[in-house]
Simulated assay, not measured.
Amino acid sequence: MLPWRVLIGECQFTAIDFESAGAARGQTDVPVQVGLARWSLAAGHGENFVSYLASDAPIQWSARKVHGIRDEDLAGAPGLLSLWPELKRHLAGAVVVAHGKGTEKRFLRAFPGHGFGPWVDTLLLARAAWPELSDHSLSALCEARGLSPRVATMIPSRRWHDALYDAAASLILLEDVVESFDLKEKPVEWLLEPDTRGWHRLRGS
């Protein structure tokens, strides 16, 4: 676990995104795809990883309508637990990033005591940074901030609600926040629990 006082400019950030099967009545939702992307101010955007995930639960129509993943896409895919070495390699020692971190934290409970973190939620960051925007979904934010072309160039042949595409987009959004508010020399705690009043003061300085 990184100390909260480490500077943002010294951190490595790894974004994670899961796409899920969708919860049927009486059943628990399960992940069917995971994507990870890496970024730091020093090294820029780096290594990515994406994989479908084996699932005993069929993908619900409502979920398939969002992400386009079909049951047949999961044929031969590894189980989430078997990807522990890969996830650990990407997440250990990094500040973990997600847009609406609840789902990602919940699915990572498959690895008790994993110790990944601290967590930066780009949804909370964006609400603090740009409260005037009416839509803080990841795609709407990237469109409003002019970031969508960068995401499409970085992750070609994929689209929104693909796990890798969304993970990379959350890092590009984080980079935009850091640059827009000149946060390089600020402690990482500024990102962990964004204070709306503090962000407003930054905007006015």
Score class of each variant (00 low, 15 high):
K105W: 02
S40R: 03
G146C: 04
R159M: 01
G198F: 06
P118F: 13
V178R: 13
K101E: 09
T28H: 07
V32N: 01
C142P: 02
N48I: 03
G46D: 03
A54L: 08
R150E: 14
V120I: 15
S82K: 10
H45V: 10
A144G: 05
Q33V: 00
P187Y: 13
A77D: 07
A21H: 05
I59F: 14
P118R: 14
W130L: 13
F111T: 15
A42P: 00
G93H: 04
V95Y: 03
V151Q: 04
A92W: 01
L53V: 02
D176K: 11
F111E: 11
H67A: 09
I16M: 06
P131L: 13
R106V: 01
K184W: 06
V34N: 03
T14A: 03
A77K: 02
Q27A: 14
P112L: 07
P58H: 10
S205A: 13
G76Y: 10
A169H: 07
P156D: 10
E143K: 09
A21C: 10
R197D: 06
G35Q: 05
A168T: 04
W160C: 05
D121L: 06
W61C: 00
L2V: 11
P85Q: 00
L138S: 05
Y52K: 08
V34P: 02
D56K: 07
G9I: 12
E189T: 04
H114N: 15
L191G: 00
G204W: 07
R25T: 12
D195E: 14
S157Y: 01
S170Y: 08
R127C: 08
F116C: 01
A75E: 13
Q12W: 00
Q27G: 05
A140L: 10
G26Y: 03
G26V: 07
P78G: 06
A57S: 13
P58R: 14
A168Y: 00
P131S: 08
G76F: 07
R159L: 02
A144F: 04
A75C: 02
R106E: 02
A98R: 04
P85W: 00
A57Q: 15
P78S: 12
K184E: 14
L164F: 09
L83C: 02
E47A: 07
S134Y: 01
V30Q: 11
L133W: 12
L53G: 10
A140W: 05
A94K: 00
R70L: 15
G113I: 03
A140H: 06
R145A: 13
D195R: 11
A128Q: 05
G76T: 09
G117I: 14
H45T: 09
P187T: 12
E193A: 08
G100D: 07
L7C: 03
E19D: 05
R38K: 08
A43H: 06
G204D: 09
D166N: 06
S205N: 12
F49W: 04
G44D: 05
Y52M: 09
S157V: 01
I59M: 11
A169Q: 04
P131E: 07
A57I: 10
A63S: 14
V34T: 07
W119H: 00
L183R: 14
R201D: 08
T14I: 02
T28P: 00
L171G: 03
G76K: 09
D17P: 05
G68H: 11
M154Y: 11
S51R: 02
L202G: 07
A21F: 00
H136L: 12
R150F: 13
G113L: 01
G102K: 08
L7Y: 01
V151M: 08
